[in-house]
């Protein structure tokens, strides 16, 4: 969704996803953009991939890569898919643009056996200092938009996301924090030093509370 993305082979988040996913698994990529991630998964892991993308251009570019993508709004739901019909459902750098994050994530957990969510972290120090010192909504490499034209209608921090996961009775299975698209963040707290976070999450339906 963001404008300045590095080459796909430098995308560490994609590499991690590639390692998580088994050969021949069924993948649903929500907000698949030009289909780069699905294409990578296709070539490296021979997955059966499906994508949902809101823009016509994204559908064209995905088709050029040989992918099957449905043009649509993720917010309209995944109700057509049966329970656990995908091995992995991925929401990569798209959480910040959707209107109904809770609904979408609950649906992802329903239709997928595993769920990956990644998003830009508004708790990143650059973001904080920008706002503190300049007094304006920060623009970063990941989020280069003006407040009035940004597709990223939701700003959230890593802490916000973790609260959300806890309150909505989900569980983090794996977590990854990135300095940028190509490097992991070495320093902690991640909410201060990571510009982006990625999680594998699951529902806690089976856990009595």
């Amino acid at each position: 969704m963001t404008a300045l993305l590095p080459e796909k082979d430098k995308r560490l988040d994609y590499k991690i996803i590639l390692n998580l996913v088994n050969e021949n698994s069924r993948i649903l990529d929500l907000g698949c953009g030009d289909g780069t991630l699905l294409d990578l998964l296709n070539k490296e892991k021979n997955v059966i991939g499906r994508g949902v993308e809101i823009s016509t251009e994204g559908v064209h570019l995905s088709m050029e890569k040989g992918l099957s993508v449905v043009q649509g709004n993720i917010d309209e739901g995944l109700s057509d898919y049966e329970d656990k019909s995908f091995d992995w459902v991925i929401l990569s750098q798209t959480l910040q643009v959707i209107r109904e994050p809770l609904l979408v994530i609950l649906e992802m957990l329903r239709v997928g056996k595993h769920v990956i969510v990644s998003f830009p972290n508004s708790g990143h120090w650059k973001f904080r200092f920008n706002l503190l010192l300049k007094g304006r909504m920060p623009k970063t490499k990941l989020l280069p938009f003006e407040w009035y034209n940004t597709p990223n209608i939701r700003s959230l921090t890593i802490k916000d996301f973790k609260d959300f996961i806890y309150l909505e009775k989900m569980r983090v299975v794996k977590e990854y924090y990135f300095k940028d698209y190509s490097k992991l963040s070495k320093f902690r707290p991640a909410n201060f030093f990571a510009s982006m976070a990625m999680y594998v999450i699951e529902g806690m339906d089976n856990f009595p509370l």
Partner: peptide, 11 residues
Amino acid sequence: QSNLCDVTYCE
């Protein structure tokens, strides 16, 4: 989609 058919849709 509910059949997991291979479908591309464009509006």
